[in-house]
Write a protein that binds this DNA or RNA. Structure first.
Lengths: 358, 358
DNA sequence: GCCCGCGATGTAATCGATTACATTGAGTGT
DNA sequence: ACACTCAATGTAATCGATTACATCGCGGGC
């Protein structure tokens, strides 16, 4: 009954391998082989099969194929927040590489809720996907600090962007620490002595790396680390604006602010400028990520360029290698680039003087 | 052999419904019913089943379920370009709504290549997904102008953002034409007489609506349409910059430029400012979309706010209704909002004079 | 002339769940 | 006490492809 209803309603039912076999006057096995291993079928049979396929518009049923072969040709991409424009280009890199390899991409936007994570973990456990790319900095079921048991997934995983501490899975990352160090040294080379750091959420692994790099850079340049120069933030434009307000309210201002992402840097700059400061004449501002708009704000933002698309492609390729049983490097580090634009300049004389010895 | 190998390699094999049934001492039918229709199973049996499920960590195999029930609980979202930040918030709205309804989201990034489109069309034809949301302005296999045969997909489709001309599918959209008209009238109300329009790609349906709205607005205000004031563009920052350069090179400049998206407006503003013009004192600039950065550039951008997240949610809900056999409205129009910020102001006197009568 | 090997093809088991239909047994009305 | 209903459960067909194994027939080696 059920069947009949559906058949009646939708018009023609999708063609099955049976239909093709009948039309081509071969068995279903031959049809299957003609598609999967053409060299094992006689040219004549293959031709008849292809013709029949074209005639009835046959498309293999993915569910049946997945069920039998235990391979879904789907990959899950888990990320903390689809809204974060930082991810869009990475996603594109991933999609490109997956598509070329014949895989589809399922998106799991965690949106900060743990129950969503559980359902995405079930995707992998159930064999809904052949593997997963994790852009969220921790494993399924794991606590933020990287301890606690990771859920058993049974499929290959690859971590992107945020290294997952203690996890035994390949990681593709940018050398955040080295990049932050480089930026800090660059600012110091401009004469800045009081270099503030606007940080991201402390629980974030990536953030910790950048923070470490900042302190490395200070040390390299013989500058003392001053906790008062570390400002709290959460990677949002608003956090940048808040930090800007905080700086404006201070008596002793930093002469440069290194923000751990571009969005905060842009929010910060805007607030500082509204508050009457000139960037970079009065204060320098630097970011991290090199998002599209970094070059478009006024002044344009000095920042660290990350090869985001390449990051996505690399991650996907490593996962694909794993899926095909090939060896994969435990860790891939991609190079960043310091992009000097208009938001950074020499330390103002007054600032240098004012902070020479308080 | 194949089976044994796999079993040996990965350790424990995923639990099947059989395993649960054996452990709970019921039949597989009862297990299935305990999950799908609990009220049709005795409380004791249900309890035993749930316990067994927890013990063996059973997760139903989606492929088997899809194969039998002809329902994949997956939805395909087709979009022209993942990179375009305009889509990220819409996607988030879609993901939220789909997740709540128990659907997964597969992303198809067309990236401008027709063969990708064909493969995504196959997804739907093969029953890989239960339905699709199209953000790309045309149906599978259809030519850009909306003619030509659409591929038979066999699943419900919903168009988002860009209405698809002639397609008999529900459309969720923003009233682009009315919004563009409103913006044009707003600019005129500031005294602008020479209002330029920086357009998007002409093949784009959405673009045509905005363009039409612009001309509506001119007409309302008794302003003549001047083809010389329509500048070519493609929605990119670079196109905005190019348009800016073109305007700077002109003798007779417009006193206001209405850009059909924010990215172009931002690129345009930046070039104009670098060229020595003041915004809005010398020239007003307005955008469309209200992307996050619209408020963050200097001066902040006057634009049309689109409820992007709501758009995504609505689209997903309409599709879900269709999937459940409920009626869906053929067309949903969401309201936009004119957001006045710093990039628009009264027409400069000189401009008004200069263009009073050439 | 017989047998072996091998390429081409067919038959049917299999993947794991859903569900139509059958069966059982307890409760109810007369 | 008997027939009937209905809830609970079981049995087995089914979804559509893949693939192990069987079969067939042809050609070559001895």
């Amino acid at each position: 009954m059920d069947e009949l209803d559906r058949r009646g309603e939708g018009g023609a039912r999708a063609a099955r391998i049976q239909d093709v076999a009948r039309l081509a006057e071969v068995s279903t096995a031959t049809v299957s082989r003609a598609l999967a291993t053409p060299e094992r079928v006689s040219p004549e049979a293959r031709a008849r099969v292809l013709e029949a396929i074209a005639k009835v518009g046959y498309v293999p049923n993915p569910a049946a194929r997945t069920l039998r072969s235990q391979k879904s040709n789907m990959v899950l991409v888990v990320l903390p927040n689809l809204d974060n424009i930082f991810f869009s280009r990475i996603l594109r890199g991933i999609e490109e590489a997956l598509f070329e390899a014949g895989y589809g991409m399922i998106i799991g936007d965690l949106d900060g809720s743990p129950d969503k994570e559980a359902r995405f973990a079930a995707f992998t456990a159930a064999g809904q996907v052949d593997g997963a790319l994790l852009l969220n900095g921790h494993l399924f079921g794991q606590t933020r600090d990287g301890r606690g048991p990771a859920a058993k997934t049974g499929v290959p995983l690859v971590a992107l962007c945020e290294a997952i501490p203690g996890a035994d899975i390949p990681q593709i990352e940018v050398d955040n620490r080295a990049a932050a160090r480089r930026m800090t040294r660059y600012l110091a080379s401009l004469g800045h002595r009081r270099i503030a750091y606007l940080r991201g959420p402390e629980t974030n692994v990536l953030e910790r790396e950048r923070h470490r790099g900042y302190r490395d850079g200070l040390k390299d340049e013989g500058l003392a680390f001053d906790p008062a120069l570390v400002l709290p933030g959460d990677y949002s434009l608003e956090a940048g604006a808040a930090a800007g307000a905080a700086i404006l309210a201070r008596r002793e201002r930093p002469s440069a602010v290194f923000c751990s992402n571009d969005e905060m840097a842009i929010g910060l700059m805007r607030t500082l400028i509204s508050g009457g400061l000139r960037v970079p004449q009065d204060i320098s501002v630097a970011g991290f990520d090199d998002i599209e708009f970094a070059a478009m704000v006024e002044p344009s933002l000095t920042t660290i360029h990350q090869p985001r698309r390449a990051l996505g492609r690399q991650g996907a390729h490593v996962l694909i290698d794993l899926l095909n049983g090939r060896e994969a490097p435990p860790r891939v580090r991609l190079k960043t680039e310091l992009v000097v634009r208009g938001s950074t300049g020499p330390a103002p004389r007054s600032a240098t003087k004012r902070t020479a010895k308080p």
